[in-house]
């Protein structure tokens, strides 16, 4: 047998295994990820469930609340923040994706700390009031920047006319 035949056969077996597993699990993984994204939207707006359209249209729940999704750069990479806004004030914040240092950056996870909920009520002019966290300056700055961007977008009362008609 040629020297390389063993390698080729093994590589083919491994490749086939991977392809089969991926084929089998992909639909479930996609569904799971969508479920999670919608769950985050539901949590940030304090609702049981939200319409799927909210992902594409931040004003889908108007006139009660608009939800902006912003991405900023944290300490360990990109951070995705959902911000629910009611008449110019923040009514909920969830950090859905991040790669902050485990342990030090745990406080931005609403399951582990109350910190994200304490951001409620902030307005564009009171963002300087955010509690700093020792050792996590960049993380906090990234969240603040995300809030700034979200609050700069029009809320339900000021939303662009096109969105209302759509």
């Amino acid at each position: 047998m040629h020297k390389l035949a063993g390698f080729v056969v093994m590589a083919a077996i491994c490749g086939a295994l991977l392809a089969t597993t991926r084929q089998w699990t992909q639909p479930r993984i996609d569904a799971e990820a969508r479920e999670r994204r919608l769950a985050a939207y539901a949590e940030v707006t304090d609702r049981e469930r939200v319409p799927e359209a909210l992902e594409a249209n931040p004003y889908a729940l108007c006139p009660s609340v608009s939800v902006q999704r912003t991405t900023t750069r944290g300490y360990g990479g990109d951070m995705t923040v959902l911000v629910a806004i009611k008449t110019g004030a923040i009514s909920g914040v969830r950090i859905t994706e991040h790669s902050e240092t485990p342990g030090i950056g745990d406080f931005i996870d609403s399951n582990r700390s109350d910190w994200p909920n304490r951001l409620r009520g902030l307005r564009a002019d009171s963002l300087a009031d955010i509690d700093a966290v020792a050792g996590a300056t960049i993380t906090v700055r990234a969240v603040r920047q995300a809030l700034e961007v979200a609050l700069a977008e029009p809320d339900c009362t000021h939303r662009p006319m096109m969105e209302t008609e759509a």
Partner: peptide, 30 residues
Amino acid sequence: SIIPEYARLPVFVLVIATFTTCATLIMQAY
């Protein structure tokens, strides 16, 4: 019997990596 003796470790690592990826996918799904 078909794994070449002189390069068995890379083949083992390939096989283990394959199953690890499968385990990751299965856990992600279920």
